[in-house]
């Protein structure tokens, strides 16, 4: 059982790392602010989720695992809102001096 859980953890964390990697490449290579934000927030939220899910079975207590879920939810929520705000600010700046 613990071996299966360990394999689950490794697979999920590797998947999370892959999306982090993809998101970072997107942030470096994409041409506009909006597309870079898209790459960063979509991929990062996904990878944080994969890593949180993957590490959950390794927690000693169920409440600790729930705290990980809460942390993921907070990250998801705040980074989504922050990326919207950055995009709005970028659009406003472009209108001011094209």
């Amino acid at each position: 059982m613990s071996l299966a859980l360990d394999i689950f953890t490794v697979v999920m964390v590797v998947a999370g790392l892959f999306f982090f990697y993809a998101g970072s490449i997107g942030m470096l290579r994409f041409p506009t602010v909006e597309s870079r934000l898209h790459a960063l927030t979509k991929a990062d939220n996904l990878s944080v989720g994969f890593i949180a899910l993957g590490v959950m079975p390794q927690m000693a207590e169920a409440t600790d695992a729930l705290k990980l879920l809460l942390a993921w939810a907070l990250i998801l929520f705040s980074s989504a809102a922050a990326s919207q705000l950055i995009a709005i600010a970028a659009r406003r700046n472009r209108r001011r001096d094209p």
């Binding site: 907070l74 929520f77 705040s78 989504a80 809102a81 919207q84 705000l85 709005i88």
Partner: peptide
């Protein structure tokens, strides 16, 4: 509306 207002409504209770 807007993302900041949404954030400021949902996040503070947590």
């Amino acid at each position: 509306d807007g993302p900041l207002v949404f954030l400021a409504r949902v996040l503070p209770p947590v």
